[in-house]
Amino acid sequence: MANVRIGIVGLGNMGTGHARYLIKNEVKGGELVAVADPREDQLAWAKEELGEHVARFETMEEMIASGTIDGVLICTPHYAHPEQAAKALELGMHVLIEKPAGVYTRQVREMNEAAAKSDKVFGIMYNQRTNPLYAKLKDLIASGELGEVRRTNWIITNWYRPQSYYDSGGWRATWAGEGGGVLINQDPHQLDLWQWTTGMMPTRVRAFCAFGKHRNIEVENDVTAYVEYENGATGLFVTSTYETPGTNRFEITGERGKIVVEDDQIKFWRTRVSETEFNETFKGGFGQPECWKCDVPVKGGNPGHKGITQDWVNAIANGTPLLAPGEEGIKGLTLSNAMLLSTWTDNWVDLPINEDLFYTKLQEQIAASQSNKKADDYQTLEVKGTH
């Protein structure tokens, strides 16, 4: 079969990063043939770095109309992802979008509806799903090794960002420019992995977000969220961008023990019998199941962005299932939207969330944003830099 002809939309840090490995033919069966960006300097970069044979366009629509591509890799600002993805799907393109899926679930749901009407392959750049640590964790839970999940706890505070990082661009850490802070910029991978590895979405969320804590910014940079699941399990998600040294520790407890993912390792404290069985049969006053501490072997490297792009190309060429379907981007976004909405309303938020209420609250934040630019203005910029 001929190579899948790929066009990149948006040549910021992420777009140029994808272009560099594609132009080196590091994705088998995929070929970079075109790029689109409204900025003359970025198109000049493409001409010099990618060569004359890679076609250059100012808009995605022009690139698609040229008939030179089979699919698009969308690397534009957060707000633009759903609209551009839906448009590309409607125009007969296969689509791979950078994370996050969007800023608010109502818009992302409309994108998913467009994907449902299309017969094209729609993926999202959740490159941490290719990490063997999380693939192994997902397998341990899905296979029943841990038993029923009873608690999840993720502390992810190693996103340290100094004030100079936020000052490097007027769009950074603004409601109009990015649509949020740590939840939409740094944490989309963790919010996705939280539900993907456990196979569970909460039924309700109570969160406490701090806005501009220890930083001169308007968006959330400190979050503590408590969630409840249908089976009675509970969870905690703690994240920030001002703590150093930070922590990245994901702990899941179940009937058969406890799993901890930290420092690129998986440790499993596995009970010899399930807690349920022990509780039903043990007759002493004090006691607990025999427990074995196991270092879980994890094999293979993490192909990251290239791995997701390769997976997308394989799905187009061979019909293989996607590791990260684009439709699943709404799950992690639902969690971040719920956390913000809980804070704004100072109340519990049931899932699925009230999408219209969240949109209204978001518009209030945008209207008061320190940035003088509206979100639509940022569709001409690339804000997917170093998250």
Rank of each mutant, 00 (worst) to 15 (best):
E230L: 12
N279M: 07
D263K: 09
W194L: 02
V27F: 02
M14D: 05
T253M: 13
G254M: 06
L362Y: 15
A317M: 14
N231F: 09
W154D: 00
G329V: 00
R56W: 02
L43F: 02
F268N: 00
A135E: 10
V9A: 15
G30F: 06
G199A: 12
W45T: 04
D356W: 02
M63R: 09
D346E: 14
F208A: 15
Y242C: 09
E290V: 14
E290D: 12
A324W: 00
S371D: 14
S118P: 01
N158C: 10
E218N: 12
A114T: 00
V54E: 01
A367V: 01
Q84Y: 06
I252Q: 00
P132T: 08
N216I: 04
R151C: 13
E230Y: 12
N3D: 15
P297W: 10
I69N: 04
Q310F: 01
E49N: 11
A210Y: 09
N279W: 00
Y104A: 14
N354M: 08
L96F: 10
V298Q: 01
K384A: 06
V108F: 08
M14P: 05
N354S: 09
G170L: 09
W292F: 15
E277V: 14
W312V: 05
G199L: 12
A173R: 13
P352M: 06
G147Q: 05
L322F: 11
R5C: 12
M1F: 11
G332P: 06
A142R: 08
S342G: 03
I6F: 05
I353Q: 02
I97V: 15
I69M: 12
W45C: 08
M14Q: 10
V205G: 06
L333I: 01
N127E: 14
N314L: 04
T334Y: 07
W171L: 04
V27M: 12
G29Y: 06
T380G: 07
I156G: 05
N231C: 14
T281D: 08
L43M: 03
L322A: 14
F282S: 13
G179N: 00
M201Q: 12
K373G: 08
W196I: 02
R204M: 08
Y134D: 01
D295F: 06
R5F: 06
V223A: 05
N347T: 09
T320I: 10
K361Y: 09
G51D: 03
E218G: 04
N112I: 07
E290M: 14
L133P: 05
Y378T: 07
N127Q: 12
L183K: 00
T380H: 13
N112M: 11
T343G: 09
R270W: 04
I74C: 07
F250G: 02
Y166T: 03
K373E: 14
P352T: 12
N248H: 15
L340H: 15
V9T: 11
L133G: 04
K213E: 13
S118Y: 03
A338G: 08
W292Q: 15
D167G: 15
G170Q: 12
N216C: 07
I252D: 01
G307Y: 09
M63W: 02
G285C: 05
K117L: 11
